[in-house]
Amino acid sequence: MNIFVIMKRTFDTEEKIQIENGEVVEDGAEFIINPYDEYAVEEAIQLKEEHGGEVTVVSVGDEETEKQIRTALAMGADKGVLIEDEEIDGADTFTVQELLKAYFKEQEVDIILGGNIAVDGGSGQIGPRLADQLGINYVTSVTDLKIEDGTAKIEKDAEGDQIMIEVPLPVLITAQQGLNEPRYPSLPGIMKAKKKPLETLDLDDLDLDEEDVEPKTKTVDRYLPPEKQAGRKLEGELDEQVAELVSLLKNEAKVI
């Protein structure tokens, strides 16, 4: 099987966000594979273990992203592809859609796996956009996946409901939490990963001009939400506290 993963490098979820002049400060921050994409990498490797084939991890980002691609290779992916977006100012979801399309239209695909959302931008647009551009079906927020006789049997989370879906390959799916438990790279895996192929592509390599990928949206500002003030801890006998809380919610906060 030709298995592909689309993956993003993101801030570690433990990081506090700092903003200067409308830009997120990246200095000193820890970066990781977007946690949802990590489920996608794991699932891809499991598919390969069961059905054979090759896992290619594709990421749009800067050269730092090589580190996260190497991590995926150390987990067990076979090849990495980095599509550099450094020369593009303010890349948005449309930009990434066009970059990935340009790469994927040259590939033979059985399945593409990605994360349900990226924990930084959080739009969840790239999977459906890419699938549409490639003319293949997609299922988002997948919690279980089996492939039998060229058909994907999928369980999807829909706000707590579970939907069982069958769809023929090729298909793109996005991973939701619960799909699997991603493995840690083993030491031999890390050693092997250093020798695995990692190809870097730019606009020229993809036969694209800057106008082709010009973003449709523009972020004009970023800011932190107003800091929440610690409120008050109630005091007294437990019964009194409970009564006071209910009264406060009803009469002061007016939320019940």
Partner: peptide, 11 residues
């Protein structure tokens, strides 16, 4: 963005 740790203004 960042799951509500920050916000962005987009056009």
């Amino acid at each position: 963005i960042y799951s509500g740790k920050a916000f962005e203004k987009v056009e």
